[in-house]
């Protein structure tokens, strides 16, 4: 039984111009209660945080604790 790749919009959006993951920051990844954020290397070789798993309680520590205001928490489409 192979697994499907089903697309989903994710509630947490990171502005990768503001994100300082490249400097070693993992603040949002560290605090997320559901552990859904990760750091990824972009095409230009720089790193940014992003939402890897669509399992969000939209509780906002990632947004509140980001030192550069790079993170925005939106409501998941299913309930907004």
């Amino acid at each position: 039984m192979p697994l499907a790749q089903t697309a989903t919009t994710v509630p947490v959006v990171v502005n990768d111009d503001l994100c300082i993951a490249d400097k070693g920051c993992t603040a949002c990844v560290d605090v997320c209660p559901l552990d859904v954020l990760r750091i990824v290397e972009k095409d230009d070789g720089k790193k940014t945080a992003y939402m890897k798993y669509d399992e969000c309680w939209y509780c906002m520590p990632c947004e509140a604790d980001c030192p550069t205001d790079a993170v925005t928490v939106n409501l998941p489409y299913l309930l907004k």
């Binding site: 209660p33 559901l34 399992e55 969000c56 309680w57 509780c59 998941p76 299913l78 309930l79």
Partner: peptide, 8 residues
């Protein structure tokens, strides 16, 4: 994960 309680 849209639960009343913290979903964790």
């Amino acid at each position: 994960y849209g639960t009343y309680e913290n979903a964790s």
